[in-house]
Design a protein around this nucleic acid. Structure first.
Lengths: 186, 186
DNA sequence: ACATTTGTAGAGTAATTAGTCGGTTTAAAA
DNA sequence: TTTTAAACCGACTAATTACTCTACAAATGT
């Protein structure tokens, strides 16, 4: 495996486990099986490593989701596809997803310009706005619906990871959870 | 203000802002307006400070909630009182609540014996179990309902904090959110 | 009044950390 | 083949960290 890739992998795992400040660069290098200097050859600073790791992970989930919602024309099925594909990715890449959350609620978030952040969430908002403008949602503020949606999502993600369901059970639960959500917000 | 109390306050604020490892004891001492040595006189180690801060905060929220649910005999109103009082406390003490979450998802959680943790969540589980055994909930596993409940709670908490509502609006939203929740899980 | 404990201070220390540097190996280009 | 550049190494450094130590002040008990 490419050493830079190996650094990414190891760093992500350690950051999720012990936090950013709790993970020394020396430990990353050691566990990745490379020398200290090599790490700083690929990433000028620890901050840059953290930032690139975030951008990489975020790009992966975004690509995956966009791949799964494109083509769908009906707003509701598009919304459902968004919900389900996000859920699937976050379960299948739980460390990466956890890392994204960690980063987003950390002071390192400031390393990313607002413009980039907006751009990254564009596709979600587009789907949401379409449903909203077509009055598919109940008569509550859109940001409140977003809140309900987001946390329903997070809870179900956590539940599925925790209970390591079979592929079939998982599919069923995800569908059930979407129905529960839709019943709540439509 | 008592210096020990001042350390508690400052440490909590900084831990929430910058994380445990991101907050040096020297910074805590400086911002609390005390000497380095004084901090270590009151708390033998940084870990002990973190642990005591958690136990203190957790005790406060537990006391508050228990004060608000005692007396209620009907399981549903007791459940509602639990939901609403938790929400109110977490909004009115958002830093402390954030700290509790931070601690619980950190490696420091290991500092607390399982026995103590169980004891601390006893009263919540009691209320939940009572509703469950009286068939007030829909036909889903209790731990799944707990997941839905918890995340509905978290989302609404975040929403109310973010949107700084008036006392009246807040009360209404909390009630609405409870109805939404109840409709979903009952 | 005196003694003892407790609170407070801040300089000091050993360990750890992010990041550097000079040098060697590997790989690609000329 | 020779030259150039990129990848890699690990010892090193300056800064930071958790924590100690000694001394002094305040409170408390006798």
């Amino acid at each position: 495996m490419d050493k830079k890739e190996k650094i990414f992998d190891t760093a992500l795992k350690l950051f999720v486990k012990d936090g950013f400040h709790g993970t020394p660069t020396s430990k990353i290098a050691k566990e990745a099986g490379i020398a200290n200097g090599t790490l700083f050859h690929h990433f000028k600073t620890k901050d840059i490593l953290i930032k690139e790791l975030y951008l990489k992970s975020k790009e992966e989930i975004n690509d995956y989701i966009e791949e799964h919602i494109k083509g769908d024309l009906n707003p509701k099925t598009k919304f459902k596809a968004l919900y389900i594909s996000s859920l699937n990715w976050s379960i299948d890449h739980s460390d990466k997803f956890q890392f994204i959350l960690l980063f987003q609620s950390s002071p390192f978030l400031k390393l990313i310009p607002q413009e980039t952040l907006d751009q990254q969430s564009q596709s979600y908002y587009k789907v949401l706005n379409e449903c909203y403008s077509k009055n598919l949602f109940t008569d509550l503020p859109l940001d409140y619906i977003y809140t309900l949606l987001l946390n329903h999502f997070m809870g179900n993600k956590e539940y599925i990871i925790q209970n390591s369901l079979s592929q079939e059970e998982r599919k069923n639960l995800i569908n059930t959870s979407f129905d529960l959500l839709w019943r709540m917000i439509s």
